[in-house]
Nucleic acid binder design. Structure first.
Lengths: 237, 237
DNA sequence: GTATGCGCAACTGCATGCAATTTCGGCTGC
DNA sequence: GCAGCCGAAATTGCATGCAGTTGCGCATAC
């Protein structure tokens, strides 16, 4: 019964493998979080413990722990004795979160300008160039995927994992409200042009310009969210 | 279906009154968090569920939920099937967190410079002046308390609650490693002088200078932490 | 004396059950 | 017709119990 496939040399580059075999609560939390960020669970929906338990074939106990995790992450809201619902921040708070994310990314970009090595800068430029081709071809879906990677390069290039985590958490919490982003093809080209300003500033080592370019980029995308902020509460599907 | 027109116009600006009667898990989480930030639970200490349950007169269930909350907050670390310990970040990560906090506060200060109204600026200046008297008198404890309030004024003055939450969370996570701060009386005077640069920049509406002053301030205090980063793990007292 | 394998104690993960609170149905009264 | 009240169902909060795993101590072999 003792099989230990246990990392014989090259288990993988595993940057951090703290949870070898995740507990059910963690698996559940991940599943629910994905359902929220991908839009399968809309903001305002009620999350009943028993239903989630039955849905995932477990008891209520791990469900409750998963909900605690998600509540601390901010993806859901728990009212004592009144159940949990998918977080539905008020418009004012959404604006705050978006501004905070812009500032976080601006800080990252500023750090990138001085902290990135040659290899990282080359990778960033390569990604940018590839995205230019996608934008020219109008490949919206591929561009969106590559876009996530682009911003993650900014997080990683800053050389500050904690800052990157803050930015990624914020990005996740905003995900349900950014569905309509990159809607039009002109927006695609505009996005790429704004990325160009960011990349140029970073390659030049100009932290101030890089931060400003990021703020401009995110201010330009700001109009594309908040469309589903006024829905009435609903049951879980 | 059942529509609930809830939110009668202005549901209430109520900034935050979500937990009328908190659940035991939340109470526990708060208690343990305080114990950690105030140093009664040192980094690396093991947190056994049964012991915590007995200590607080509850069963293991709410303890487990509280630990989940704290793990998501980053104050503790949970290894599946191996228990939880008070978080003990490696020195490199501590440095990252401190840098991130400096940048967060710098962003706040920059926003303060343009977002603060006359009344808020007056309150900030008043607080700064009062702290000047405390520094002159060498009242370290009173200065430290007032210092927390000073930084909270910066968070609040930025007009972005989410950003303020990020900053406060980070500050809490760093709390166990900042015990020796403001050690000498010269540090007290220096701190006040650095605050003066921040206040001046904000009052003048100079966002760039305000951010730079905050970075300088936190860089100067950076040397006072990390003393307890190398202890071996220990049992809970 | 050091290294290896086995067995036990301790602890965590999860399921189940009960009590308390909230919510919704219908009813009474105005 | 509408507001207020009361009782039952639904749902959450918490305690308890059991199975599985981890870690440690001890005996054994080299």
């Amino acid at each position: 019964m003792d099989e230990r496939p246990d990392s014989p040399g090259a288990t993988g580059p595993a940057p951090d493998a703290p949870a070898r075999r995740p507990t059910r609560a963690e698996t559940l939390a991940e599943a629910i979080a994905s359902a929220i960020t991908e839009g399968r669970l809309a903001p305002g929906m009620a999350l009943e413990e028993e239903r989630l338990a039955a849905l995932h074939g477990v008891s209520r106990t791990p469900v409750r722990e998963a909900l605690r995790l998600l509540a601390a992450t901010g993806l859901i809201e728990q009212r004592p004795r009144r159940g949990a619902v998918v977080a539905r921040p008020e418009p004012a708070r959404l604006a705050e979160m978006f501004q905070a994310m812009a500032e976080l990314e601006a800080v990252c970009a500023g750090l990138c300008a001085s902290a990135m090595g040659r290899a990282e800068k080359a990778a960033l430029y390569a990604r940018h160039a590839a995205m230019g081709r996608l934008a020219r071809d109008g490949a919206v879906d591929a561009y969106r995927d590559a876009n996530v990677g682009f911003h993650e390069l900014l997080y990683a290039g800053a050389g500050n994992r904690y800052l990157a985590e803050l930015a990624e958490t914020t990005r996740r919490r905003l995900a349900p409200f950014r569905a309509a982003q990159l809607g039009g093809p002109d927006r695609l080209a505009a996005s790429h042009a704004e990325h160009g300003a960011i990349v140029t500033a970073i390659l030049a080592g100009d932290a101030t310009a890089a931060a400003a370019a990021v703020r401009a980029h995110l201010a330009a995308t700001e109009g594309a969210w908040g469309l589903m902020a006024g829905q009435p509460p609903a049951r879980m599907g």
